[in-house]
């Protein structure tokens, strides 16, 4: 499934002509970080993508030892037929992206979960705490550098 259908891509390209590439990436377009909120607002208010689906952060360790992160956001238009819109942000080791909480209250726990498990900070989130792991947990389990069987004495 393409991440953006042709109509949505055309409308998005028309709204942000200089910032977006000409051809749509089948995995979803890479959007500059400073346009993240603007793209979400445009999709929600102009194109009717009112339903928050998910945010996926992933850790891409580089060959030189530095960290890269990618954050993909998915929205859905609850119409018939229903389509999704996904776009990606690529960020460096500072691992900070602006939050979508002011637009979508459903982003609250999803962003907290990604902060907990991957370690991407969502600036502006009102309550950025760990969601899944205990508060005193060390490390972010879904980073590639985190061993799956990390011990946690005295419990395991």
């Amino acid at each position: 499934m393409a991440a953006l259908d042709a109509d949505t891509w055309a409308a998005l390209r028309g709204a942000f002509p200089s910032a977006l590439p000409i051809d749509a990436d089948p995995s979803g377009p890479v959007v500059p970080v400073d346009l993240h909120v603007a793209v979400a607002r445009f999709l929600k208010e102009s194109l009717g993508f009112t339903m928050y689906v998910t945010v996926v952060a992933s850790h891409w360790p580089q060959a030189d030892g530095s960290d890269r992160f990618e954050v993909a956001t998915v929205l859905r238009r609850p119409s018939n037929p229903s389509v999704t819109a996904a776009w990606r942000l690529q960020i460096g080791p500072e691992a900070e992206v602006p939050t979508l909480f002011p637009l979508f209250a459903g982003a609250d726990w999803q962003e907290r979960e990604q902060f907990d498990l991957v370690g991407v900070r969502f600036t502006g989130h009102p309550d950025l705490r760990r969601l899944m792991m205990p508060e005193d947990w060390e490390g972010h389990p879904l980073r590639k550098s985190y061993a799956i069987d990390t011990p946690h004495p005295p419990w395991r």
């Binding site: 899944m132 792991m133 389990p141 985190y146 061993a147 799956i148 069987d149 990390t150 946690h152 419990w155 395991r156």
Partner: peptide, 8 residues
């Protein structure tokens, strides 16, 4: 069993 968050 081998996952970081589960006790064996």
């Amino acid at each position: 069993r081998d996952i970081y968050s589960v006790i064996p």
